[in-house]
Design a binder for these strands. Structure first.
Lengths: 224, 224
DNA sequence: TACAATTCTGAAGGGATTCTGAATACTGAG
DNA sequence: CTCAGTATTCAGAATCCCTTCAGAATTGTA
């Protein structure tokens, strides 16, 4: 899961990233609105944390732009302002949640999870795909009611494919999603093959149909 | 889809090509503006990545030339300069997008896809042509709602024909777009015949009308 | 902290799929 | 009919994917 943190206070954004990284999110930082718009224009984030009180403009405009573009990004406003007015203005413009500074990182994390669930999975905490059930809250999956133990990467991989179901996702995209930094992800996708194999093996062994199709030369597709 | 990367930093252009190749683009490199002009004069590119800060001149002139010739190429400027002025100058001259170094390759890829969609498909991510539907984002096609599996080349071929629908495209043009190999494409179109046959067969088998007409001595036309 | 267990990732080969050129057969224009 | 252009088939080449395995990295536990 990929997040964009729009925040100019370096200390704060750093500690947010440190915490959310623990929670297995991939984080990018935009220190100002211009950068934020650049990034959101060319990227889908699972959730954007938006401080609306940055020096270089009005965050509500960024929010408006984000929502107007019919993006799938969820938005959580974080702000020192905590007047009812601001809250209402933000939510009216389509923000998914509003969090007043200061806040606990655990609360932020919980809200992010909630927003992502709502947007990605129509609010369902549990995805049911025929015999396959994914509990995004517990981060567990089961086939025909019987639990299947996945490693973290396997789970991430599955969730990424499921959240793009019926779409071909390139190995570039998968690699980036799994490893976080795209520095040296050029020609070595061996680790994807390995995880893919292990994941598929576990699923099939558990009695799940093999929904993950390899599309030769293009990538993979969760076909359901 | 065919790209031209105008960039003198070998390391950068190499990693760009490595990444975009994975995303199924055909890439050519021009290390300077002279080569760039040579190439754009004789070939159509779906998108040109133009570093405007090369040693041998001003990239904005190349851009001007490209746009003046009424070419169909999209242009994305990449540049270390990130002043508002440069940005505006570039966009005023007809660039489709502007990307400041350093950038993530996935971001570049996303912008390329957006530019191509805008230029070739009126910005549509999903093309609906009677019973045939092409999802350019998911890279899938379906006939009457039922998915049809195409290989890479078949998909590229179909997309190229569709992006020129109701126009005759020469086999030279097709060969160029499919192989990217400028050298020896003038005498052997056998591979086109092969792909064409396989594509048509799959489409017809899926219940799609055979929109691809062979125009004797001219080329092919997606007739709809 | 140190140790053990698990998970991750890169390398190597073998296997599967797709690509493409050659050979051959067919079709349309003149 | 003739010839150039197009279609079909097929097999080798090229590319890509899968599997296995071992060492590295991470995580869990005492």
């Amino acid at each position: 899961m990929k997040l964009l943190i729009v925040e100019d206070e370096k200390e704060l954004s750093k500690s947010i990233v440190a915490y959310l990284k623990q929670e297995n999110y991939l984080c990018e930082i935009a220190p100002d609105f211009k950068t934020a718009l650049d990034k959101t224009e060319s990227f889908d984030y699972d959730c954007v944390l938006l401080d609306i009180t940055l020096p270089d403009g009005n965050g509500l405009n960024v929010l408006k732009g984000l929502k107007a573009d019919n993006k799938t990004d969820g938005v959580i406003i974080i702000s020192a302002k905590n007047s009812i007015d601001d809250r209402i203005a933000g939510l009216n413009l389509g923000a998914d949640d509003y969090l007043a500074k200061p806040f606990h990182l655990s609360e932020l994390s919980a809200r992010i999870a909630a927003v992502i669930r709502r947007r990605r999975f129509d609010g369902n905490k549990v995805l049911v795909l025929n015999e396959l059930t994914i509990d995004t809250l517990a981060k567990t999956i089961s086939v025909n009611g019987k639990g299947v133990d996945l490693t973290r990467k396997e789970y991430d991989l599955l969730l990424y494919l499921v959240s793009n179901k019926n779409r071909v996702v390139s190995k570039n995209a998968i690699a980036e999603h799994l490893s976080g930094d795209e520095a040296d992800v050029f020609d070595n996708f061996d680790f994807i093959y390995a995880h893919m194999k292990n994941l598929k093996k576990k699923m099939v062994q558990a009695g799940c149909e093999d929904y993950i199709k390899s599309i030769y030369g293009m990538g993979y597709k969760f076909d359901i």
